[in-house]
């Protein structure tokens, strides 16, 4: 069969999401952010919420998320996204509001904002990308950096005596009465991506059903920061990251 007979609009089964625009993404080759961006774009589109969604971009690699997903965005100061989302949602309750945050943003400088927005039961979605490193600033230690893991600011490996322990912030957030859904997902295989999308959809629906705060953690890679190939980073993640941050729902009420 000629390939041109297959490549016809009626046979299309997968494509770049409609809400993801043509701007070339600045992320490194193989970066997990791109897949997570696609899932967000797909879920918003499938829910028909394009005109009602407001995203809060973080500081860090995803600071330019607003350049890629064609919705309205506010760009937050480092760690403050949940506070910003709180006000936007309270002032515009009919809007669908989510934050997109990395580990340094959400679990270090923004810990207070994260905990308190979740504890107030804000009807927002927190998308948490945990790649155990500060990517944008050049690969420094994050609160979620694994024990022994080498980064620019723990060049001999994270030493718990010096740096404390990797922070399982999702477990912490799951303890709060204000959260309805806390889950850990990944996007390293097609199956994982499909599962993660369902989780994301549920989180967004929770927010519109006024069920409280939902947090979707994506255990991710930063192959540049980890100094590995994208594929090797995925394998390293499966072996090491999943051991500390096991996938699955931590809370679903």
């Amino acid at each position: 069969m000629d390939i041109n007979e297959i490549i016809k609009p009626e046979n299309l089964v997968y494509d770049k999401p409609r809400l993801m625009n043509d701007n070339p993404m600045h992320y490194c080759p193989g970066c997990s952010h791109g897949v997570i961006h696609k899932l967000i774009a797909e879920v918003i589109d499938e829910m028909g919420m394009e005109e009602k969604t407001i995203g809060i971009a973080p500081v860090g690699c995803a600071v330019f998320a607003y350049n890629y997903i064609d919705i309205d965005w506010e760009e937050a100061a480092h760690g403050r996204a949940p506070a910003i989302a709180t006000a936007i949602k309270r002032l515009n309750p009919e809007k669908m509001v989510f934050t997109y945050q990395g580990d340094g943003d959400l679990a270090a400088i923004g810990t207070a904002e994260t905990i308190h927005a979740c504890n107030r039961g804000e009807n927002i979605v927190i998308v948490f990308v945990n790649n155990a490193i500060y990517g944008m600033t050049g690969g420094q230690m994050a609160p979620t950096t694994l024990e022994g893991m080498v980064t620019a600011t723990c060049p001999y490996g994270r030493d718990v005596e010096l740096n404390g322990y990797p922070l399982k912030i999702s477990n912490l957030v799951a303890q709060l009465d204000g959260t309805c859904y806390v889950t850990r997902q990944s996007v390293h295989t097609a199956a994982a991506v499909k599962k993660a999308k369902k989780a994301l959809r549920q989180a967004f629906e929770n927010s519109m059903n006024k069920k409280g705060a939902s947090l979707v953690e994506f255990v991710s890679t930063c192959n540049s920061g980890w100094k590995m190939s994208p594929d090797a980073a995925n394998k390293w993640m499966e072996e090491h990251m999943f051991a500390k941050y096991p996938l699955g729902d931590l809370k679903n009420v």
């Binding site: 494509d15 770049k16 997990s32 791109g34 897949v35 295989t189």
Partner: peptide, 19 residues
Amino acid sequence: GCASCGYVCPDGCIAVYKV
């Protein structure tokens, strides 16, 4: 046409067709 390639592509460069 399983689209596994598309799902994992971080840059949305892949379109998949199936018959």
